[in-house]
Design a protein around this nucleic acid. Structure first.
Lengths: 148, 148
DNA sequence: TTAATTTGTATCGTTCACGATGCAAATATA
DNA sequence: TATATTTGCATCGTGAACGATACAAATTAA
């Protein structure tokens, strides 16, 4: 049996599994506020900088606009954001936080540390996390560059 | 602005992005054989050990059976696997490779190294990959244990 | 200025993920 | 043996992801 085909030798399977399991950790913390994990990511982006075009939100999350558009529409239906046509460029759709969307930040104050603590283990500690971040960032940059 | 809410301080976002980008690397390599990445993972599992119940395949991939069942049905429709009722236990559905499913392994021989090479970068080299594997495996085990 | 191209979003179709639920076969308990 | 519980798989509904496509607004070129 070819070693390269072994599941235990697959980087992508590890990333895929770790990503899903951490997302599952977020689920009970976010669902009580009617949020999904991708919606939470949109909030993180808008909390950093409010009133951005769809394209900027998508780029920040490394997602396509055809993923982000329906996601934002659901958030608009929930009253978390507003979507208004751009004034300078009528093609743009500017996404802004509502008061409800802004206030959610305080209510979610416990989320980052709760998930952070759930991930701490033998080889992933506050001291070693930068090493992991560095590797993942390098992989992400490499693949973003490869995809132009 | 709370540091904990910054996107750049989120482990999960990195994992999520890295996972999606690597999966995108697989896409052109797999789609020419009509495969998706999760379907490729099922093949990896069955190439290691043929004829397994749905439950074992799902557990190996850390997925729920309600995710794996429709996935397997699509693979059955493509003639890659067969699904037969278990003889010992009539509740079980045994998934086995067809000749077509077995032969695909040779045709996909170039895939693992192609993706592996695409990921090599400054901080992720054949020497440092074990460190990354260790960290991801620890996180996965920690979260699997937390979810019982 | 008119025509060609690019850009920003949106729509559509397919395939995951996954919580909730249903059901039959197997096992445990009374 | 009858009943209760557990187990293995499937169905359903919702929300991502994403390739393909469409379309209008903006930009560039002729």
């Amino acid at each position: 049996m070819n070693e390269q085909f072994k599941l235990d030798n697959q980087l992508c399977f590890r990333l895929y599994t770790a990503s899903r399991l951490i997302t599952q950790e977020y689920h009970p913390l976010l669902s009580q506020f009617g949020l999904t994990y991708p919606q939470y990511l949109v909030l993180l982006v808008l909390w950093e900088k409010d009133a951005q075009p769809v394209n900027d939100v998508a780029k920040r999350l490394v997602l396509e606009t055809n993923t982000v558009t329906p996601l934002l529409k659901r958030m608009e239906a929930e009253g978390l954001v507003t979507r208004c046509k751009g004034l300078k460029d009528a093609r743009q759709m500017i996404v802004s936080l509502t008061v409800k969307g802004k206030r959610l930040q305080d209510k979610l104050a416990a989320v980052p540390s709760a998930v952070g603590n759930a991930v701490i283990c033998q080889s992933v500690t506050p001291q070693t996390v930068p090493v992991l971040y560095r590797m993942l960032d390098d992989i992400i940059e490499k693949l973003k560059a490869a995809g132009e």
